[in-house]
Design a protein around this nucleic acid. Structure first.
Length: 425
RNA sequence: GUGGGUGUAGCUCAAUUGGCAGAGCACUUGACUGUGGCUCAAGAUGUUGGGGGUUCAAGUCCCCUCACCCACCCCA
């Protein structure tokens, strides 16, 4: 029986796996400098956690969760996003606030796979917890902006909106609900439901007739309280000051329930339908929702798969596991044993080395060395063992040199060689 | 959940109105048993995604099904 991948999952092959390591290294360096520490919460949580944070009005909780019961009858779910776990971990472990955390972890959502969308995918996220000021939003956005720029994300643009706070949102939602109720018959089925569950989400609707209705809908901008207005202005001003281009999108409301005030999305024109590369925003009430003290917070997360899909990978994330800096070619039984001992010694000395043990004469072994993309080979036969001098052959130039083990060790082109050169998967 | 597309060798793809399932690349072996890449020669490879039907005959036509891709919805 041969098995295949489960729908919506993928095998990250060596080439891409190496790219991800590079990306994580870049993120780690960058985020560390801004005071972020890594955190690794578990892969599954109580279902209830997501119900109370991601929200019962969100599509994720309504229809996309991998929900299961364990043997003890606990109601659990694979994490569909990182923020709830991070906040839960902060509260549960009494981490000192303020704190900045980042993570790179897999997420699980049971929606229909598509280009750039998988049932298991990896998100890198950053959360600033305990800072209510607009500067925190600006800092975070700038961090993302710089990161994506450095990664060479093409066709990138930033969209910004504010969705108000506890003070001003209820008044607005009430007004909006009244408006939507009046126009109920002109709305699509989904929007009729949204009117009840989360009226703001109606703005997300792509149906033309709904958008038509929304044209005359009350504007949230006019209903923002003083605090929200000032906060939003400060964020925009901050972005302007650091030359981060953005577009205001009054329609963008985000799919998760816990957001307040600032919401952001980085998009790429290269992604087609799944154009959101990175989403996030402020979530000042989440801590309280989860039974903690009032704790303002802001954060974002981006999908690695999509990021890699849109980055000029060639320049920055070029690598391969194919090239072998040094390949030992033993000739004969005695040499085979000798070679094994030799490669262990060479590796101990910091040299990347492999040996071609598969049977064959020199001609065959050289052919194999070629097929394996070896940079250099070390030929070891009876004569060489007797003399304790080996033949080092450069596979590109064909140049050969005899040398002793000590001379080999001192060749510094063999040191510090990594897999990150070029080649195929 | 709704639409559209694609399934043929390890990979990329051919196959005329239904008429012997093929090519290139890759692979194996040899020419060449201590000197690779080039060349030449030979070789292996398939339930044509699966099941059923029509037919003397199905990769090709019909029905069902599965997988993948793309789009809607939504999201990273």
């Amino acid at each position: 029986m041969r098995y295949e991948r489960v729908k919506g999952t993928r095998d990250v092959l060596p080439r891409e796996a190496l790219a991800r390591r590079e990306l994580e290294k870049l993120v780690h360096d960058k985020f560390s400098r801004a005071g972020f520490f890594p955190i690794l919460p578990p892969t599954f949580e109580k279902y209830e956690l997501y119900q109370h944070s991601t929200g019962e009005a969100s599509d994720i909780v309504i229809k996309e969760m991998y929900r299961f019961a364990d043997m003890g009858g606990r109601d659990l779910a694979l994490r569909p996003e990182g923020t709830p776990s991070v906040m839960r971990a902060i509260l549960e472990n009494h981490l000192k606030i303020p704190i900045r955390l980042w993570y790179s972890m897999t997420m699980f959502r049971q929606d229909k796979p598509q280009k750039g969308r998988y049932r298991e995918h990896t998100q890198i996220g950053a959360e600033i917890v305990g800072e209510a000021e607009p500067e925190a939003d600006v800092e975070l956005i700038k961090l993302g902006y710089d990161l994506f720029t450095e990664m060479g994300i093409e066709g990138m643009y930033l969209e910004l909106n504010t969705i108000g706070c506890r003070e001003c949102r209820p008044g607005y939602t009430e007004k909006l609900t009244r408006f939507l109720t009046e126009h109920q018959k002109e709305l699509c089925e989904d929007c009729k439901l949204r009117t009840q569950r989360n009226p703001l989400r109606v703005f997300d609707c792509k149906v033309a007739s709904c958008q038509e209705v929304l044209k005359s809908a009350p504007s949230q901008r006019e209903h923002l309280c003083q605090g929200c207005k000032e906060h939003f202005d400060a964020v925009k001003k901050g972005l302007g000051r650091f030359s981060i281009p953005f577009g205001e999108n009054e329609r963008m409301v985000r799919g998760l329930d816990y957001y307040s005030r600032t919401v952001i999305e980085f998009k790429s024109t290269l992604l087609g339908a799944q154009d959101t590369l990175c989403g996030g925003g402020r979530y000042d009430y989440l801590a309280e929702e989860l039974g903690g003290p009032p704790t303002p917070a802001t954060g974002f997360a981006f999908g690695i798969e999509r990021a890699l899909l849109t980055s000029r990978g060639e320049d920055i994330f070029e690598f391969s596991g194919a090239s072998i800096p040094l390949l030992v070619l033993p000739l004969g039984d005695k040499a085979q044993a000798y070679a094994l001992e030799l490669i262990f010694k060479l590796r101990q000395a910091g040299i990347s080395v492999q040996a071609e043990f598969r049977s064959g004469g020199l001609s065959r072994k050289l052919k194999r060395a070629d097929a394996r993309n070896a940079e250099r080979v070390l030929i070891i036969g009876e004569d060489e063992i007797a003399k304790a001098r080996f033949i080092l052959r450069d596979m590109h130039t064909g140049e050969q040199k005899e040398m002793t083990f000590e001379e080999l060790l001192s060749l510094h082109e063999l040191k510090g060689h990594s897999l990150l050169t070029n080649g195929e998967d």
